[in-house]
Design a protein around this nucleic acid. Structure first.
Length: 875
RNA sequence: GGGCGCGUAGCUCAGCGGGAGAGCAUCCGCCUUACAAGCGGAGGGUCGCAGGUUCGAUCCCUGCCGCGCCCA
């Protein structure tokens, strides 16, 4: 096909997405359709993309997330909004450093320490330029209509300045502090982690009961971490535990070390767990750390940064997982092991980046004091300034913000925003703002750590718009309209962006709405994972089925609050739907459909019917978009396009178009109208095929695209209940005849002589007898017409002459089936109407409806009984 | 252990007080001049179990069983 207009006759019989998608995307970009103008008078609508990781590539989760955002943006753009979708990536501190360190080791056999900090960071930038951001090209394939001219990266100068600015502000406000605490430590990544970067799973470990001390003064503690006993500085029991009351205040000797440690009373101890006595290791357990604080216990660190035992005799140099059995064995030799349980299943934390078991570690780190920030974040939702969809997710949000721990923001990495704190020779500590000069002179050094990536990501909704500068973009597009992300990211993204947005922007929220979607799962509802081998690559789907089919499959699965199951079969179905649209448009163009001029004032019932259905669809889809009901709006469009338009309207139009004349002209215009509006409605979800077809239908032009066509608005004046009812009856008649034909085994091409009788014709269907005959393949009742069977729909009777070839047994089976259903219906209705309580208490409309159903059922029974009697003796 | 959610057709999911629905899959018949990536037709469900409220429960309430997720 040529890059020019696809004229009707040029459209191939099947839609080929590959070439169309590339060409369309390039054209949108060339025509500048993605960009926005902050100076425009149009109302603003804005979305910032949840920045993907610079090391990442597009997976199904992104594809879903982006499809939703793109659909929202495209609709608003068509509605005339200045619609900004902001693209970019985050620098993913740990992940990126890991990738580059691995590359360095493989290519040069060096560690980052061999290079030194500055050279290593330069190397990461080189890696980023060469390999980073693969996902950006993949977003183009998906059709993301982001404003590429505004692409941002969290390590850019501007965003780095934003990081420095907010750090200083928080520091000066006393909301950032440094403290020695137990933090989550990854012994492989060699850095601290925040609480949410730790994933808990129930793992098999062991529960060992160890006897400390001798004789009457002995006490037995239960632990899953025997190896940390070298750092114990107390044994704790519940203050009201009578079993140990006599031991509180005494001391026991700690094996191997000879240290004497006290037995302390602490309400934190659960008397029902294990023996009711626990070892206390303040340097290696967060709860023990708190017990230690309460009782003024020393903290003794016995594991180094790699998780290896330090000092302390025979166990020195052993990894924590080698030390555990070694220490248990040694204790057993001493007769101190009272009980052992394994496997003992308990929750264990793992590094979300490398899955290494996290080691609680006592160290000096930087923290954000979240209490006032989290309270503001909670209040913004509580008082309705920010709405969360679906609202059930609010509970999770509140549970989190109302119980948030201080946020550990320092990371022992080189790749990231270095903490802007300088330490002086005399113990001074100075926070240096982005526009300030660091203190000069002997002995001043900058803090070696960098900030958590999420610290910079939390600024994304305003740092990308130019903050801390007061830019036109910030004025126009902040607060952003909606944030779309998975519910699993609620705590990462939403909470942190809320905290920093409200803080930095004088109480103005970063977004008005939060839309949370589920996880993409496989066709059996199972989570996709490499180990399960059920991961589907969206790029492969785009290759095989097209980007539109991929997007439609995902969007059609989005029910608020639920996960999204997908499978190849459904992607195929979506591809088939693209092809259906393609061929419907092809048919229309081959038959002279047009969008020129106003709609004719004289319209047939069929034309009025389809326009009525069209505007019902417009209204429905519009409403569903507002409610983020993607599955339902996709379904509505699918059924309107396939059922109403393709199965019925196009078929009903064929005889009209074939006959020609003014009626055909009117239908050509209505056909053009229906497709024009339908393609516009579908465009946000299926941008490529709709653009290709819309141009073919409405003609080419510079800068013309369905992407910037007007979003349809529902027109109640086009709703026509009479026409809808009339066509509904017509459809039931046709369907009933087709059912008869199928039951009788008649060939689809075989015409059957029939006579149609319209006694009252309340619905006004009689005028459409030719259409009924056409769709049901009925011939005129000529001379010698002898009805051998009859069907009744509403008050219309269709008498058929099958010329003696009727299959009596099949017809009897059919009638008996209908009769059984009718009797069941009659009995059910009669039972209700025979119930005094029902008549007395049910509302009148309900009673009336049941009366009507009873009458209809009785009429059906009479008719079917007659028909069955007429059949006896024949065959 | 705490909290949230879910159990409806073979699969994935809608529906959430008055006639059990969709897509895909299945079965039957069709190359009907837009489309076989298609057309026409059909079968298939004591709506997890047990109680309760109600004239009426898949839908509301309680309990139980099973599953999932988050937090500790």
């Amino acid at each position: 096909m040529t890059p020019q207009t696809a004229a009707a006759t040029e459209l191939p019989a099947q839609y080929q997405p590959g070439e169309v998608e590339t060409r369309r995307y390039e054209r949108w970009a060339a025509d500048g359709l993605f960009g926005v103008d902050p100076a425009s008078d149009r109302p603003a609508y804005s979305i910032v993309i949840p920045p993907p990781n610079v090391t990442g590539s597009l997976h199904m989760g992104h594809a879903l997330d982006h499809t939703m955002q793109d659909a929202l943006i495209r609709r608003r753009r068509m509605q005339g909004y200045e619609a900004l979708w902001m693209p970019g990536m985050d620098h993913a501190g740990i992940a990126t450093q890991n990738v580059v360190e691995r590359q360095l080791a493989e290519q040069d056999g060096k560690s980052r320490h061999d290079l030194g900090r500055d050279a290593f960071v330069r190397r990461v930038w080189q890696w980023k330029d060469e390999y980073g951001g693969r996902i950006l090209g993949q977003m183009r394939r998906l059709g993301d209509s982001v404003d590429w001219s505004r692409e941002r990266f969290t390590m850019d100068a501007g965003l780095s300045s934003a990081v420095g600015t907010i750090f200083k502000r928080l520091y000066d406000d006393g909301l950032i502090y440094r403290a020695e605490r137990i933090i989550n430590w990854c012994p492989r990544c060699l850095t601290a982690l925040s609480d949410i970067e730790v994933e808990h799973s129930d793992d098999e470990g062991e529960l060992v009961s160890i006897r400390y001390g001798e004789g009457d003064s002995a006490i037995v503690v239960a632990t899953t971490r025997a190896e940390t006993m070298l750092g114990d500085t107390a044994v704790a029991v519940h203050p009201e535990d009578a079993r140990y009351a006599h031991l509180v205040g005494t001391e026991v000797e700690l094996p191997f070390t000879g240290r004497r440690i006290p037995v302390v009373p602490d309400a934190h101890v659960d008397p029902s767990f294990g023996t009711g006595a626990v070892k206390v290791t303040p340097a290696h357990d967060p709860n023990d750390f708190e017990i230690g604080q309460r009782h003024d216990l020393p903290s003794i660190t016995v594991l180094d940064e790699h998780g290896v035992i330090t000092a302390h005799g025979p166990f020195e140099g052993l990894d924590r997982f080698e030390a555990r059995p070694a220490i248990v064995a040694a204790l057993r030799e001493q007769g101190r092991i009272v009980a052992e349980k394994r496997p003992y299943v308990h929750a264990v934390g793992h590094c979300s980046r490398c899955n290494t078991t996290v080691e609680p570690r006592l160290s000096k780190q930087w923290f954000v004091k979240v209490e006032p920030l989290a309270k503001a974040a909670g209040d913004a939702v509580r008082d309705g300034r920010v709405a969360i969809h679906p609202p059930e997710q609010e509970k999770r949000y509140f549970a989190w913000v109302d119980n948030m721990h201080d946020w550990c923001i320092s990371r022992q990495l080189w790749w990231g925003h270095r903490i802007p704190i300088w330490y002086g020779p005399a113990g001074e500590m100075v926070c240096v703002g982005p526009d300030e000069e660091p203190p000069s002179g002997e002995g001043w050094t900058q803090d070696a750590d960098v900030l958590d990536t999420w610290f910079s990501s939390a600024l994304w909704p305003f740092s990308t718009l130019g903050w801390p500068e007061r830019t036109p973009e910030l004025a126009k597009f902040y607060p952003t309209s909606v944030l779309v992300t998975g519910y699993d990211i609620l705590f990462f993204w939403v909470v942190r962006m809320m905290m920093f947005g409200l803080y930095a922007m004088a109480g103005r929220q970063p977004f008005d709405q939060v839309v949370l979607h589920g996880l993409v799962r496989d066709q059996f509802g199972k989570k996709m994972s490499k180990s399960r081998g059920n991961v589907v690559d969206p790029l492969e789907w785009m290759d095989r089925f097209g980007a539109d089919a991929t997007r439609f499959t995902l969007a059609r699965g989005v029910n608020p609050g639920a996960d999204v199951a997908v499978s190849e079969e459904w992607a195929q179905g979506s591809r088939n739907f693209c092809n259906k649209l393609w061929n419907a448009t092809r048919f229309a163009l081959l038959n002279g459909a047009t969008v020129a001029g106003p709609l004719p004032t004289e319209l047939s019932t069929v034309d009025r019917w389809v326009l009525s259905r069209l505007h019902a669809t417009v209204a429905e889809v519009d409403r569903l978009f507002e409610e983020y009901e993607f599955a339902k709006l996709c379904d509505t469009l699918y059924h309107f396009a396939w059922d109403d338009v393709c199965d019925w309207y196009l078929e009903l139009s064929k005889p009209v178009l074939a006959a020609g004349g003014p009626a055909a002209d009117a239908t050509r215009r209505v056909l053009g109208e229906v497709l024009d509006v339908l393609l516009r409605l579908l465009h946000p979800v299926m941008p490529f095929v709709t653009d290709e077809l819309w141009e073919a239908l409405t003609g080419p032009g510079a800068g013309r695209s369905v992407m910037v066509a007007e979003w349809p608005t529902p027109d109640d004046a086009r709703r026509d209940a009479a026409a809808e009812n009339r066509i509904a009856v017509l459809q039931r008649i046709v369907t009933e005849v087709r059912r008869f034909r199928s039951d009788q085994g008649l060939k689809p091409g075989q015409k059957v002589a029939a006579r149609l009788v319209f006694p009252a014709d309340d619905a006004g269907v009689a005028a459409h007898e030719p259409l009924i005959r056409s769709l049901a393949r009925l011939a005129d009742a000529g001379d010698g017409f002898e009805p051998t069977a009859s069907l009744t729909v509403a008050d219309v009777e269709v008498a058929l002459d099958t010329r003696g070839s009727i299959d009596v047994a099949a017809e009897r089976a059919r009638l008996e089936k209908d009769l059984t259903a009718a009797r069941k219906e009659r009995d059910g209705c009669a039972a209700k109407l025979g119930n005094e309580a029902f008549l007395a208490k049910a509302p009148e409309p309900v009673v009336g409806k049941i009366r009507g159903r009873l009458a209809a059922a009785e009429a059906d029974i009479a008719r079917l009984t007659d028909a069955l009697e007429g059949l006896t003796g024949r065959g």
